[in-house]
């Protein structure tokens, strides 16, 4: 089995809205696949179809070689699911949550206990094992969610926005866990609106927007698609920003972006750098920072979709910060 996950032409409508407009995916076993896109792009719907929670209106999908509709019960024996919606029981303790799942998966009481203790220790939750999950911090809660999805030692793991709303430290911890799982041979399908996250973890990325995959490839391939590099200039005095925009625009031949106190513009030819320096000097602009770097996935997304992902990120953070 070379492909752990395969989807062909998945379509799913909710009333008048089309959440999935024909999604194709192929995920090789033992790799991390990143599904990247803004809110409402269809990421969660895709995961729900692949995890047998939702039937597609058209198209088909298989996980571990089993059809998600006809062989749903077999698929469920192979997968683990963690997401904004597939949650632990807040009224139970960490141990009880994992015991519940262990018992449901057919482990004996003793085996379920061992497995729960092992996972809680592995996720640094041993001290909180006897506390109700509703008392956990956001990061602890995510770790317990992830532990719950690993009780059955899944071959394929779905992580739906695993780090949304987490502080950087908790996020890094979670990333480390995912890397270890992959080293153990698990196939991971991860959805995220954080371009950095996909860049950090994924072997392959599919960019989704409006229910369609609009680009796919390795992070490097996607970055290369925007033509390579980005020029970033930060003047010492923010009053010089308009002058910098004029210079950068003239050299690069496109309209630059202003991000707080930094002006960025994609460039195809690295040799523009001396020209930029000369012109800025001539304009009397004192430069605090001048850099030429590979374009980030942010810029990839912008060039592919015509809109940024950043604003939705802060919206989501606010939503996630206040538990419903």
């Amino acid at each position: 089995m070379e492909h752990a996950i395969r989807a062909e032409g998945l379509v799913r409508r909710f009333g008048g809205t089309t959440a999935l407009a024909g999604v194709d995916l192929e995920v090789r076993a033992g790799t991390v696949f990143g599904l990247l896109g803004p809110n409402g792009a269809g990421k969660t719907t895709t995961v729900r179809v692949l995890a047998t929670l939702l039937r597609p209106d058209a198209g088909r999908a298989s996980v571990g070689g089993f059809d998600v509709e006809r062989d749903a019960h077999r698929v469920r024996q192979l997968i683990g699911l963690t997401g904004q919606y597939a949650s632990v029981d807040e009224a139970l303790t960490g141990t009880e949550n994992l015991l519940l799942i262990g018992r449901l998966l057919g482990l004996s009481r003793a085996a379920a206990r061992v497995r729960a203790a092992e996972l809680l220790a592995g996720f640094h939750l041993a001290d909180a094992a006897g506390r109700a999950a509703k008392t956990y911090s956001g990061g602890m809660r995510r770790r317990l969610d992830l532990a719950a999805s690993l009780v059955g030692r899944p071959q394929v793991l779905f992580l739906d926005e695993p780090t949304t709303g987490l502080d950087p430290r908790s996020r890094n911890e979670l990333w480390d866990i995912v890397r270890k799982l992959v080293a153990d041979g698990v196939t991971v399908l991860l959805t995220t609106q954080y371009l950095e996250e996909a860049d950090q973890l994924a072997d392959e990325i599919a960019v989704v927007d409006h229910g369609r995959v609009i680009a796919r490839g390795t992070p490097e391939e996607l970055k290369a698609r925007t033509g390579g590099q980005v020029l970033a200039v930060r003047p010492r005095d923010p009053a010089d920003l308009p002058a910098v925009v004029t210079v950068a625009g003239a050299v690069a031949g496109t309209v630059p972006e202003v991000n707080q106190t930094t002006v960025t513009v994609p460039v195809n030819d690295p040799s523009v750098l001396p020209a930029v320096v000369r012109r800025l000097d001539a304009a009397g602009v004192h430069v605090a920072e001048l850099a030429l770097r590979s374009s980030s996935l942010d810029e990839v997304f912008l060039s592919l979709t015509g809109h940024r992902t950043e604003p939705t990120r802060t919206d989501q953070d606010v939503l996630e910060g206040t538990p419903a």
Binding site: H73, Q77, L104, L150, R153, P154, K180, G185
Partner: peptide, 26 residues
């Protein structure tokens, strides 16, 4: 040993007795 190596061949469906056991656990 966090994951993988589930040895079993997946079964096609749940028997009624197993379902009853799930019910009791829940």
């Amino acid at each position: 040993t966090l994951a993988v190596d589930r040895p079993l061949v997946p079964t096609r469906r749940v028997g009624p007795l197993t379902g009853l056991r799930h019910t009791l656990t829940l």
